[in-house]
Nucleic acid binder design. Sequence first.
DNA 1: CGGACAAGCTGA
DNA 2: CAGCTTGTCCGG
Length: 603
Amino acid sequence: MVRVLPDVAALDKTFDYVVPDGWDGDVRIGTVVRVSLHGRRVGGWVVADGVTPPAGIRLRPLAKVTGWGPPAALVDLAEWAAWRWAGPVRAVLRSASPPGAVRGLPPAPAPPNVAGGPPPNVAGAPPPNVAGAPAPPNAAGGPTPPNVAAAHDGNDPLTVDALARHRAVVRLPPAADPYPFALAAARRGEALVLTPSVEQAVQLARRLRGDGVPVALAPRDWARAAAGGSVVVGARAAAWSPVPDLAAVVVVDAHDEAYREERSPTWNAWEVAAERARRAGVVCVLLSPCPTLEQLAWGDLLAPSRSTERAGWPAVEIVDRRRADPRSGLYSDRVVALIRSGGLVACILNRKGRARLLACAACGELLRCEHCDGGLAQNDDGDGLRCRRCTRSRAAVCQACGATRLRRLRPGVTRVREELEALAGRPVAEVTGDSDHLPDAGVLVGTEALLHRLGAADAVVFLDFDQELLASRYRAAEQALALLTRAARLVGGRGAGGRIVVQTRVPGHEVLRAAVHADAGRLTGPELARRADLRLPPATALAVVSGDAAGFVAALGPGVEVLGPTDGRWLVRAPDHATLAAALAAAPRTGARLRVEVDPARE
DNA sequence: CGGACAAGCTGA
DNA sequence: CAGCTTGTCCGG
């Protein structure tokens, strides 16, 4: 008899079934099955076997074995994650299950470490072809760009040191190649290597295969991973990939927000992978130019030498705009000179459209919506105005004096492109998240999505960095530094000659000091103090609870603090995650709509 | 979730 | 009171 968790929304409950004769070999914990439940057939997972069902219930037999599912250890881990992030186990088990039915596993390849790798913890023969083939993780393949700092091989002291620990956080500068860590982990056996994006995983998998490592690319090669003998490489959900004999975990760019699952439960792949490594008793190495405070609290920080870290960052130039002539708008002399000088320049402004806020040029009144009083933005075609709150449109006329000449207080990317083109004297193209090809222009303007689209640039300009530095999200400072590291990837290390230019009215901000000095550690102390002072993570644990059923939080406590509701959202604060999870376990299990976001992305 | 069943509403 | 909607309950 087995216990089954049905894959049915709003039903976080298990039911017991009889395993029909002769099915025993195909049914184990994690197996994906179909069962009849209340007159219909639904999918689900076996979550326990050899169970004693409650008395007085006539058990039904399993209806069907769909195929392989997550191994028992991952079912257990899924239950932990569902508790830790206060969401349904079902959602986590979906992430841990193969994309389609897996009827059988392929034969396992020869163990990945037969290719002459050293035994664990011992620096042995140098691995083949490591230092010769570095590529940045975001390169679209092909030959090595010249602007990448020379990679250390898998026997670099930093790599050896990291792999010899239980929990290592390696502050790898932006231009450094993470590959040697992946290869060194692969030489230990079945390693799990996570990257923020699928493309990076594909790249890394290709390079590992080139070095003779058997690789399963998640989620496509789920069955191959489950068969064992392969290194598993993938993006966020690969944290749930089967790895039968886990030997090591490496998380590339562990600070990246892409590791956070957006749907509830909002698990984070680095934390899942780290817990997995802990349970398996193997090393977990987080790589990041800018580790988060949570990560620094979790593991041992290993930083390269000052000279190595400096070499892995480009020059970062701060343009102090505190005394700038307001008529110069977003364009300092420095930026104008740079865009005229040639080369590929990427200008970043995190504001879409033509203008996000307008004032009357005649009377100075802010343009507001007549219906809801919200601020008005200019439509992309330049004609009408649109309310940012209620999305109603109206003509571009001042509601106070009737004048039609308007001043743009917060120009957006579309308008900035026109202005930059006039200043640059050469074509300037706007790149948005949804334009599917990169325009062929020397100067590109876009939101930060441009940094994701572009492989390389000679310079990256942040036209208004203060909105990143001063954003109200509590992680704003870390996110701003992450933005600078992404820009650094495009322009390469110090030796490559590229640069980052940052326009700001807060030139002394720790984020900027950290980037200028190529030392993310300069942000850590002040930021940690700020978070502790405001009782924000990692000093506390937070969750945002919303939806029709969210009212239950009002009765929570003691031990947790409940704020709100504002806009139908409650903020729940606890001294630590165990307390938070225990409190949120009181959430109604079924029925009305409820969203629980532990470690909220915004706030 | 979605089916079953009960209680409530409506119109002839 | 049939026929339909709405609400509540429950699943092995």
